[in-house]
Each structure stands twice: as structure tokens, then as C-alpha cells.
């Protein structure tokens, strides 16, 4: 380890400890970046040279599909390969109180004595500037800590959680039998973001039906007709090694450099920032300019697309 330089700051000292794998330092970096503290800009600058190495794997799906349990089993498979793992488990906050019960890691309890696994829970609200930017900064913190794989677990229930899942390099969408009708899964649009579809709880009645429904949904899709559909039983580990191999196969088929990987994440952030901006602009009332544009759309003088382009130009 190199000697601390005479002009070393608390921020650079923290990053040195993070790079040395000190758990408390990683925990602190995650917090500073989550909250975008006054120290965050310098911390982000300090870690920039180390980023883009980690593979980010997202797990999303409806409540009760078994995401946490599958993540627990997937961690085991990764550890058997000797890979280090960071987990960011996102749980919803109450829209009323802002509070949250963060219980995902109850089901990831096999790894508390393993220094190669670091799990952090994240509540979805209370994030000034959005959940997704916070999650991306926390991914960077794990990346800087040298984690080989970063797992992002989110409930695919609300739009913001899907947004977070989209940040992952490889996205796994879970379903399980008995969670509502199968059209529901397709309606939610999360099929389109999936790189791998998983039917978990494959030992339960109805699993085969769910599997076939997903398979036919995939085959009908014009966007993602080659998405693999797999079966797992997270509680026993059945199918999990195969899932890990599938992830590796997809990763190998891509020619992502660390730079393009990070740029893809930034691309998502940019898209949402732009959408947010337009949304705020359009929701503002009263606004004579927006009213005029709406009238043009209603009268057919402009298509909504043309109007949106005009709006973007003037923002």
C-alpha cells in the first residue's frame, strides 16, 4: 500500500481504505454517495479511474416471486466461482410516512460471515434527485471497492423500480406461478427489458403453465424473440448454476468496455432527466404556451411528436 501523501484529504483517505477492502469504508462511501453529501463530488472524482469493471446484474419482478431468495442462491453460485459480490436491495418506502421496512436481506442470510459479499438495503423514496441516480452512484461505490459482480434487486411494481432495473448490464425478470394472470406480466412492460426470464418456484403447481405462457409471450414479441426463459427453485438452488452460466454467456456475447458500460448507465440517467424535465414543464399550470400547443394537437395542426420536439427545443 502506498504511503498517504502529505496533501491527502479525508476523501482520498476514505477511497484508499475502500480500495483496500475495508468494510466500514465501503459502507461509508455508499452512504455518502447515496445522500449526495458535500463530500460526494470529490469522492466520485477519486473513484472515477476504478469504475466500469464490475458486471451489474439486475433482478426484478413482482412481490413474492422470490427475488431475494434467488439472489441468495445466485450469490452462492458466484462465490463458488470465486467472484466477489455487492448487493443493492431496493425496497419501497411508504408514500405516507416516508419510512420503510427493509427486509430483503432476511433471505440473504447465508453470506453474513463472508467478506466477499457486501449487502446494502436502499429505500426507494426520500431521494432528492431520484432513486435511479442514487442507485447508479452506489453501484459505482461497489465498483470502486472491486466487486466483480453487483446485484441490483428491485420490486418491479412501480415505474421507478423498473427504471432502476434498466441500469443493470444484464436484467433478469422473475415470475412465479400463482401471482396473478399471465397477461398482467406482459402488460407491465417488464418483459421488454428482460435479458433472461425466470420462472421461480418451478416446483409448484402451475409453474409449467407460467413457463409456457412466458415462452409464447417471448416468441410473439418482435423486440425480444430470443430471450431465454429458465426455471429455478431458489430455495433448493435448482437451476441456479444454469442461470449463472446463462448470465456469463450473455455477458461474453457483448463487446462492452468499461467505458461503454458506464456510458449506458449515464444514457439511462439522461433519458429520465429529460423525461422528468418535460413532465414538470407540461404539468405546470397555468401555462399559455403549453395550452396553445395542446390546442394545436387537438385541432390536428401538430402531431404530439412534433409538439414534443418543439417543446424540447424551447426547454
Amino acid at each position: 500500500m502506498r504511503e498517504p501523501e502529505a496533501d491527502s484529504t479525508p476523501q482520498s483517505a476514505l477511497i484508499e481504505r475502500v480500495r483496500a477492502g475495508e468494510l466500514a469504508a465501503v459502507a461509508r462511501l455508499l452512504t455518502e454517495l447515496e445522500r449526495l453529501s458535500p463530500a460526494a463530488p470529490q469522492l466520485l472524482a477519486e473513484i472515477a479511474p476504478f469504475l466500469g469493471r464490475a458486471q451489474v446484474v439486475g433482478f426484478t419482478g413482482p412481490p413474492g416471486a422470490g427475488k431475494s431468495t434467488l439472489v441468495n442462491a445466485y450469490i452462492k453460485a458466484l462465490r463458488a466461482e470465486g467472484k466477489t459480490v455487492g448487493v443493492l436491495a431496493v425496497d419501497p418506502s411508504s408514500p405516507v410516512s416516508g419510512g420503510a421496512l427493509l427486509g430483503d436481506r432476511i433471505r440473504m442470510n447465508d453470506h453474513t460471515d463472508d467478506d466477499g459479499v457486501f449487502i446494502r438495503s436502499l429505500a426507494s423514496r426520500g431521494h432528492v434527485g431520484g432513486l435511479t441516480p442514487a442507485a447508479v452512484r452506489m453501484i459505482d461505490a461497489f465498483d470502486a471497492a472491486g466487486k466483480d459482480v453487483i446485484i441490483l434487486e428491485t420490486v418491479g411494481a412501480g415505474q421507478s423500480e423498473i427504471d432502476v432495473a434498466e441500469v443493470a448490464d444484464i436484467r433478469i425478470v422473475l415470475n412465479a406461478p400463482g401471482l396473478g394472470d399471465d397477461i398482467q406480466a406482459m402488460k407491465s412492460g417488464i418483459l421488454d427489458i428482460a435479458d433472461i426470464l425466470v420462472v421461480n418456484k418451478a416446483d409448484l403447481d402451475g409453474a409449467e403453465k407460467t413457463f409456457r405462457h412466458l415462452l409464447s409471450a417471448v416468441h410473439l414479441s418482435s423486440i425480444k424473440a430470443d430471450t431465454p426463459v429458465m426455471k429455478t427453485v431458489a430455495t433448493t438452488g435448482e437451476g441456479v448454476v444454469e442461470l449463472a452460466q446463462q448470465v456469463l454467456g450473455i455477458a461474453a456475447s457483448r463487446s462492452e468496455t468499461p467505458k461503454t458500460r458506464r456510458r449506458n448507465r449515464a444514457r439511462r440517467l439522461l433519458a429520465w432527466a429529460a423525461a422528468d424535465m418535460i413532465e414538470r414543464r407540461v404539468s405546470k399550470r397555468p401555462d399559455a404556451g403549453i395550452d396553445a400547443v395542446c390546442d394545436d394537437i387537438l385541432s390536428g395542426r401538430m402531431t404530439p411528436d412534433e409538439a414534443a420536439i418543439e417543446l424540447l427545443k424551447s426547454s
Partner: peptide
Amino acid sequence: VASFLRDAGMEVIETA
């Protein structure tokens, strides 16, 4: 108690 704290707006990590 975990529910009390959550309903008061806190982030609660609950274990078995």
C-alpha cells in the same frame, strides 16, 4: 416496534 419506527418515517432493517 419496527412498524412503529417505519410509520414514523424511519428506514428499518428487520431481521429474523
